[in-house]
Amino acid sequence: MIGQRHYLLIGALIVITIASIFTSLLSGSVNLGINAVVAELLNSGHELESQVLREIRIPRTVAAFTTGGLLALSGVIMQVLLRNPLADPYILGISGGAAVGALSAILLGAGGILLTNAAFAGALFSIALVFGIANKFGRWSVTRLLLTGVVVSAGWGAVINILLTTSSTNNVQSMLFWLMGDLSQSRVHLGHYTLLLIGLIGGLLFSRSLNVLSRGELVAQGLGVNIQYLRLVLYFSASVFTAAAVTIAGSVGFVGLVIPHMLRLLGARDHRILVPCSILLGGSFLVVADSLARIVIAPQQLPVGVVTAIIGVPSFIIILRSTISK
């Protein structure tokens, strides 16, 4: 059900999103004032400032927002598909596959586009593997899918550990950054924006079915949902969103698990609201986390995945407490 407070929530999140983007554009080792940022956005900036914004901060901010949005959306879908509050975008082993791809690329000395391609290929392989095994023997069930995903994840975990323990110290450093999630090398392009847009529109189109499916598969069927079709769409869309997010920034934790729960606690339980809110809050949350990652121990940078947990855990607990006492 949608009420006035839901529109207020969306409004508030749009404000937060804009604020987070400005915070991110203003944070970093080169000090830029708000005037410089505004001037640059209006296309009349200074040479150096212009370069910093254009080549470093804007792409990075956009990458952070896109990654966060995709992860939160994927989290929403996974939680409904598996009807498990512990589900997150990585639960079915996609990030594990991507990590093995990325780490192998690092081991072989590849970087840049090769590394992202390797990560994406690993993710796709894992998606197909889990889907294949879960559907191979008999009927699809949530338990079977979940177990397959968890077991495949564990397998990837072992491979990751082998790669970590057998690599040189130099490589291990980059591998760890990738594993924790890091936006310093991230670039997004048209494909990523398109994917996020498709996610938003598709998520809205399917939002009523998501509402019904969150009450269980039998109930959803009884209420007229074609479940075979819906779960295929959900599995593959959530997987592709996750794969895209992971190739942008590595496996940034926490966003996909907790952002949907925070919003549900704040009353956005209807997916017509939860879908757009997740994209906004997931995106702006990662933008803020990445700003902090850049300035907390500047000029050094933290992996953003560490910061998401450090600010995410207490804010989640605060929301949880305040909604329980009501």
């Binding site: 059900m1 809205l204 509402n211 009450r215 039998l218 209420l223 339980r269 017509r272």
Partner: peptide, 28 residues
């Protein structure tokens, strides 16, 4: 159904409203 409503968080009213799902509804 014999097994109740397994559920992500939802209120009573929201749940009963889901009964309207098979009928044509507006998106927003």
């Amino acid at each position: 159904f014999q097994d109740g409503l397994e559920t992500l968080p939802a209120t009573v009213m929201e749940t009963v409203m889901l009964g309207r799902h098979p009928h044509v509804q507006s998106m927003f």
